[in-house]
Amino acid sequence: MNGPAAPAILVSGARKVYQPAPWSASRTAVEDVSIEVPQGAIHGLLGPNGAGKTTTLKMLLGLVLPTAGSFEVLGKPSRVPANRAALGFLPEQPYFPSQLTAIQVMRLYARLAGVSSESRAARSSELLERVGLERHGHARLASFSRGMLQRLGIAQALVGSPSVVILDEPASGLDPVGQRDVRNLMLDLKAAGTTVLLSSHQLSEVEAVCDRVSILDRGRLAAEGRLDDLLNIAGRTSVRVSGLPEGLPAAVSGMTDDVAVSGGVWVFSVRDDQVRSVVDVIDDAGGRLLAVAPKRESLEDYFTRLLERPAPEAEVAR
């Protein structure tokens, strides 16, 4: 009988203390961070600058020596080089040897990733086409723009057909069309069963694709769970209405919070148990109901709130 599938990524008790020299002061970059990503999911890793996201990823990839913790990909220690065959990685702002061409770089990374010599050329061309660089395969990378390098970085991360892909700020440097392409690419990967760990500052991107997120703050795990569960404000519902030229009916005004009006559209929140009566009053007043949804904090507000807290205490939403 087969046991449960190993998580695609398992980070347990990760800790990293930097101490440049024995006599210098130490700095804890990551403290007791644990992340579990099931196979086939897109998991977001969020946090303000300096939160420890990239350090955690680097420990997982064997680029930084952990002070403590264990790091596994598909049930095997990821710090052992051979076990990284199943892993693809896009670093933040990727750079490449500038005198090589895109095709040469792709073939180099294909070989390093263990792609067979027969399929290297085809795989390289296929991926360059997938990221929109098919016409630039023979151009030296010194002539590439920031966005083109980012696209090439994504292509090289996928060259070994990895089961697990780690993307550090994949939309960085891309125009809106490029950002949409990256979002679609992640959804395509997920549809194909590939696990994606996405570290990003683009909160809209995270909201659009991630099943769950881990939020780091000052080196610690501040929250973990589904975005809806983390951001929805318990007991409050958001209502959008229009067609109220005289303003909100008096019977409603007393029940609302966070009222905003723009272009004849009113947005406000009410307690969940007041929704029915508020809707009835709006209806009677001739207003048009546009939306009723759980009131949700924006990720920006959530982050701001996190940063204002003295020390992170993990908030887990299941």
Binding site: L61, G62, L63, P81, A82, N83, R84, A85, L87, F89, P91, Q93, P94, Y95, F96, P97, Y109, L112, A113, G114, G153, Q156, G160
Partner: peptide
């Protein structure tokens, strides 16, 4: 410095290699 080494060492490549 340019972090080109990440693209190499994140693959199944040992530092000795």
């Amino acid at each position: 410095d340019r972090r080109t080494v990440y693209n190499v060492l994140a693959k199944p490549v040992a530092r000795l290699d």
